[in-house]
C-alpha cells in the first residue's frame, strides 16, 4: 500500500501558497454563515413563540366569560348547567316523603363515601322537621327548651379533598339560586356546628367560615365568608330557596317557641 499512498500523495499535488486574501475570505464566509444562522434561529424562535401563543389563545377560554369555572376537585372545566352538575356529581333529589319527622336529611352523592348522618344524642329530643311544601323550600325545626337539636342536612364529602370553591359556586349559582331549579339539589350540611346555633352545615366551600348573623324578622341569616376575604356566600332568609332550613339557637330557645331560621344559598356574583 506504500505504492498507493505515494500515488495518492502525488495525485493530490502540492500545497497551494496560502495568501491573506484566502484567509480573509474564509473568515468572511464563516462570519456571514454564522450571522445567517443566528438570524434564522431568532426567526425560528419568534415564529415558534407566535405559534405557541396563537395555539394557547385559541385553546384558552374567552376572557371575561362568566361561564367558565371549575366544577370539581379544583379542576378547570367549562360551565355546567344544573342538570350537568347533577349528572357529574350524582346529585339526587331527596324524597320529600321521608323528610317528615326525620332526624337527618341526606343528600346522596353516589360515588363518594357518605358520612353518617349526625343523629341526636341520647336524652335529647329530635327536632321535628317540617317540610312546608313539596319542594323542600323550608325545613323547620321545632324545639323545646333544653333540647339540643341537630338538624342535619348532610352531604357526603365529595372525594378526598372536598369540592373546590368553584364547584360549590357553580352548584350554588346554577342549582340553588333559581327557584325552578333548586328542587333538584337538596343541600347540604354535616360538619360545622356553629356556636349558639346548632347548625350543621356544609353548604359552603371548603375553608370558608360560617357566620350566623343576628335574626331579622324572626329569621337568622347565615353567611359563609371566603378565606382571605371577599364577598360572602350568603345563606339568607329567603323562603323560596330550596335549601332553607330552620336553625334552632340553644341560647335563645324558649319553651314552646318555634325558632325558625331560614337560610338559603345565594351565589356570589
Amino acid at each position: 500500500m506504500t505504492n498507493l499512498k505515494n500515488l495518492l500523495d502525488e495525485a493530490a499535488g502540492s500545497e497551494p501558497q496560502l495568501t491573506d486574501a484566502d484567509l480573509t475570505a474564509d473568515l468572511t464566509r464563516g462570519r456571514r454563515s454564522l450571522r445567517r444562522r443566528r438570524i434564522a434561529g431568532i426567526a425560528t424562535a419568534a415564529t415558534g413563540t407566535v405559534a405557541a401563543v396563537g395555539v394557547a389563545l385559541s385553546l384558552a377560554p374567552s376572557v371575561g366569560s362568566t361561564d367558565t369555572a371549575a366544577a370539581g376537585d379544583g379542576q378547570q372545566t367549562v360551565t355546567k348547567t344544573c342538570g350537568q352538575l347533577r349528572t357529574d356529581y350524582g346529585l339526587k333529589v331527596t324524597e320529600s316523603s321521608v323528610a317528615h319527622e326525620m332526624a337527618e336529611i341526606k343528600l346522596e352523592l353516589p360515588g363518594f363515601v357518605a358520612k353518617p348522618a349526625v343523629r341526636p344524642r341520647d336524652g335529647q329530643t329530635v327536632g321535628t322537621i317540617t317540610v312546608t311544601n313539596s319542594v323542600w323550600d323550608m325545613v323547620t325545626f321545632t324545639d323545646k327548651p333544653t333540647f339540643t337539636t341537630k338538624g342535619t342536612v348532610q352531604v357526603p364529602p365529595p372525594g378526598e379533598h372536598g369540592w373546590s370553591d368553584e364547584a360549590w359556586r357553580q352548584v350554588a349559582r346554577n342549582c340553588l339560586d333559581r327557584s325552578n331549579a333548586v328542587a333538584s339539589v337538596k343541600l347540604v350540611a354535616s360538619g360545622k356546628q356553629l356556636p349558639g346555633a346548632k347548625l350543621w352545615c356544609d353548604l359552603k366551600p371548603a375553608g370558608w367560615t360560617p357566620v350566623v348573623r343576628p335574626p331579622a324578622n324572626g329569621q337568622y341569616r347565615l353567611d359563609f365568608l371566603p378565606p382571605g376575604g371577599g364577598a360572602p356566600l350568603v345563606v339568607s332568609a329567603d323562603a323560596k330557596r330550596v335549601n332553607s332550613f330552620t336553625i334552632p339557637s340553644a341560647a335563645k330557645l324558649n319553651s314552646g317557641t318555634q325558632h325558625r331560621f331560614t337560610a338559603s344559598c345565594h351565589p356570589v356574583r
Binding site: 474564509d26 473568515l27 464566509r29 464563516g30 454563515s33 444562522r37
Partner: peptide
Amino acid sequence: VQTALTKLYVHW
C-alpha cells in the same frame, strides 16, 4: 474546502 471551513467556523 470553503464549505468545510465555513461550517467549521460556525461551530468553532
